[in-house]
């Protein structure tokens, strides 16, 4: 009697390879995907180039943010006036109050906050920066994760990860509140980060922290 191939015991690697080899795209699916890639392939070069692997394409918001930050200051100022018309979003005011309330707290990186970052696919703060304080807080009745990071030599930055899309539609908006710079950056669905930093904090340092924590932003 011939034994059914499905019932023959094989080394696990071989069995799994055979199991997955049966899973293939249909010719129709393959055609669609190849059509999709061929439409765009002429725009991309396949020439190998050293690229930071963590820059996985999803982080292009930051590539765009670099342009915004470095080359569109005038546009940002205009956007600020257009969007806020002398009134500050409640989120910023709420965050500022939280910063003031916890200014004396120095608990470093809280384990619960560390777990929250991991669960939400947010990388740790780059090691060269000190985390002075971390905790959960409420911003406009929404739970947020607040991390205070010291600049290398001067300044302080606050990161509020906010589990809703923020009440602002633009991908990056920014302004100044009580002598603190702020930006709101959309990370992905249901999560945004509000960054507030003192004016003596270097812009490059803030950007370095953001790029370290969010290498895989999906817009």
């Amino acid at each position: 009697m011939i034994q059914d191939d499905n019932q023959i015991k094989k080394p696990i690697k071989q069995a799994l390879k055979e199991f997955y080899s049966n899973k293939s795209l249909t010719s129709e699916q393959l055609d669609r995907l190849q059509q999709l890639t061929s439409q765009n392939s002429c725009e991309l070069e396949r020439k190998p180039e050293k690229v930071d692997f963590h820059d996985t394409g999803e982080s292009s918001i930051f590539s765009r943010s670099k342009y915004f930050w470095l080359s569109s200051m005038a546009a940002s100022v205009m956007m600020f006036f257009i969007l806020f018309d002398n009134s500050h979003p409640g989120l910023i005011t709420s965050a500022y109050q939280d910063i003031a309330k916890d200014s004396e707290l120095h608990n470093g990186l809280d384990i619960a906050v560390s777990n929250w970052l991991a669960v939400n696919n947010i990388s740790p703060v780059p090691k060269e920066f000190d985390i002075e304080m971390s905790k959960f807080c409420q911003l406009e009745k929404q739970i947020a994760t607040h991390i205070r990071v010291a600049g290398k030599s001067q300044g302080t930055a606050h990161f509020f990860f906010h589990q809703k899309d923020a009440d602002l539609q633009a991908e990056i908006v920014q302004g100044v509140e009580n002598e603190m710079n702020w930006k709101i950056i959309y990370i992905r669905e249901n999560i945004s980060v509000l960054v507030m930093y003192t004016q003596d904090m270097r812009e490059e340092a803030v950007q370095k922290i953001l790029l370290g924590m969010l290498p895989n932003v999906i817009v």
Binding site: L36, G57, E58
Partner: peptide, 27 residues
């Protein structure tokens, strides 16, 4: 993932296969 890859990648990538897998994973 392919749509994102094509839309977002403006420069050549050293390891496109691993790169696309990471996008699939994140999605």
């Amino acid at each position: 993932a392919l749509e994102r890859y094509l839309k977002k990648v403006s420069k050549a990538v050293e390891n496109p296969n691993a790169y696309l897998k990471t996008i699939i994973r994140n999605l």
